[in-house]
Structures are given as structure tokens and as C-alpha cells.
């Protein structure tokens, strides 16, 4: 099962196994990883699962889709490597993915 590393704003790191097909957001909330709120539960309508994808993984995750980009426009501290974790689907190719969370989602 792919391993995803979630790094909180303060540097605390959580490595969890996430089944293929689930989202990076689901991996966080099902394993009680702090720093991703996911208020809307994956509907791409709240921007509270904002994360930064480590540069080496960006070619594999790709950039945000149209609705996701519109939601990211409304979030704080958006960088070129920003994504909503609910919109990144976990695959074998993402085994080892590292995402970092902003200081606050709300």
C-alpha cells in the first residue's frame, strides 16, 4: 500500500499507508493526522485540506483542476505547489509522496 508522509506546520511528520483510490485527504482523516480539516468531506467546496506537494512529486500529482483552482484562489498562502488534498487520488506511483500543511486551514 502506498505510504504518504504528512508534515504539519510545526514539522511533526506522520507516515501513513493509504489504499490506492482514496484521496490524500481521506488518508489524513482516517488516520487522525492533524493539520487537514476537510470540512466539506471531499466535495472541493471548502479549501480546508490545502497542502503543499513536495517539488519532486509535482510532476506525478499534476496541478489543480478547474474547480480546485477556483477554490484555491480563495485560500490563504497559496503557492505554485498548492493542492487540495481531497483532489489528489493515491496511486502506486505516489508511494512515498510528501505533502506539507499550512499553519491554519480555517
Amino acid at each position: 500500500m502506498p505510504k504518504i508522509t504528512y508534515v504539519e506546520f510545526d514539522g511533526a511528520s506522520h507516515v501513513v499507508e493509504v489504499p490506492v483510490g482514496q484521496s490524500v485527504m481521506q488518508g489524513a482523516i482516517r488516520n487522525d493526522v492533524p493539520g487537514i480539516e476537510a470540512d466539506c468531506g471531499g466535495a472541493c467546496s471548502c479549501a480546508t485540506c490545502h497542502c503543499y506537494v513536495d517539488a519532486q512529486w509535482l510532476p506525478l500529482t499534476g496541478g489543480p483542476g478547474e474547480i480546485e483552482a477556483a477554490m484555491l484562489d480563495l485560500a490563504d498562502n497559496v503557492h505554485p505547489d498548492s493542492r487540495l488534498a481531497c483532489q489528489i487520488k493515491v496511486s502506486e506511483a505516489l508511494d512515498g509522496l510528501v505533502v506539507r500543511m499550512p499553519k491554519s486551514q480555517r
Partner: peptide, 11 residues
């Protein structure tokens, strides 16, 4: 992760 504001597209 309470549900006070609902969850999903109607959050």
C-alpha cells in the same frame, strides 16, 4: 472534525 456545519457540497 464535527458536523455542525454539515459535510459535503452543502457544507
Amino acid at each position: 472534525r464535527h458536523t455542525a456545519f454539515a459535510v459535503g457540497v452543502h457544507h
